[in-house]
Write a protein that binds this DNA or RNA. Structure first.
Lengths: 128, 128
DNA sequence: CGGGATCCTCTTTGATACTG
DNA sequence: CAGTATCAAAGAGGATCCCG
C-alpha cells in the first residue's frame, strides 16, 4: 500500500489531491511554511513570534509533522540554554508553484468571494 | 474591512494565502468540488454517494459554505419528492490551475514524502 | 428526497505548570 | 530555551428522529 491509496485518501472521498491537502493544508502548516520560506532558518521562539496566534504546544506538533513529511528540517544544538533551529527543505520549497497559484487566484478572485458572501447573506439563502 | 484583513487572516499567522486556504481547503471542500467538477451537476444524494465517507449533515454544511462563497450553485425544484441539484460555478472552475498544480506536485513529490516518513519513523526522530 | 433539530462522542485546542 | 505533561474547554463530527 502506497501513500496514494492509504486510508486517508479513501476517506478523502475519492479525490486524487486529498493526500496533498492533508500534508500541506492541515491547520497552521501553511503559515509556518510561509514564514520559514520568507525569513529563512528560525529558532523555535522566533518562529512562534512570526506565526501570530499559535501556541508553543501546537507549533511543536505541527513542526514534528512537517519534519516527518520532509518539508522542514530540525537542527538541535546541544548547548545550555538549548538552541533549536528550523528550516524549510528543498522539498518544502518545491511547493512554491502551488503557493504562487494560490496567490494569483487570491488576487483575481478573493473579492468575488466577498461579493458572493454579501449577496448570500443579504438575500440569497436557500429557499425550500 | 475587506476579506484580506479579516480576523481569519490575522489568525492565520500573517500569511497572505490564509484566506484562500480557509475557503478552498477546509475539510471535505476539495473532494466536493472535485466530484462536482468531474461529474457535473448532481443531486444531493448522488453527490453524497460520490464523496465517500461524508454524512448528509456534514455535506449540507459544506455545501452551504461553498454556496455562500460562490463556488457552488444550488438549484431547488419545488416538486414532491423534492429535488435539489448542485453545480460548480465559473468561480469554482477558476480554481482549476490551483488543483492542477497540486496534481503535478503530487505526481512529482508524494513518494518523497513517503520516503521521508519512513526515514523519520525508522531512525530520524528528534534527539535532544 | 433533502434536509433541520437534537443529543452525544471524540478529537483538537487552550491554559497552566514543570523540566533538562 | 525548547519543549513535555496535565487538565479543562471547545468545536467538529456521527447517529438518530422527524418533517415538508
Amino acid at each position: 500500500m502506497t501513500i496514494v491509496d492509504s486510508p486517508a485518501l479513501v476517506a478523502g472521498g475519492g479525490c486524487p489531491i486529498a493526500p496533498v491537502v492533508d500534508i500541506v493544508f492541515s491547520r497552521w502548516t501553511t503559515p509556518i511554511l510561509w514564514q520559514l520560506n520568507a525569513h529563512g532558518r528560525q529558532r523555535f521562539t522566533d518562529l512562534r513570534d512570526l506565526v501570530e496566534g499559535i501556541t508553543a504546544k501546537v507549533l511543536t506538533q505541527r513542526l514534528r509533522q512537517l519534519e516527518r513529511d520532509g518539508l522542514v528540517e530540525r537542527t538541535s544544538h546541544p548547548e545550555i540554554p538549548p538552541r533549536v533551529e528550523y528550516e524549510i527543505t528543498e522539498l518544502g520549497r518545491s511547493l512554491a508553484p502551488v503557493f504562487a497559484a494560490l496567490v494569483t487566484w487570491s488576487e483575481d478572485n478573493l473579492d468575488r468571494v466577498a461579493d458572493a458572501r454579501e449577496g448570500y447573506d443579504t438575500s440569497g439563502r436557500p429557499r425550500p
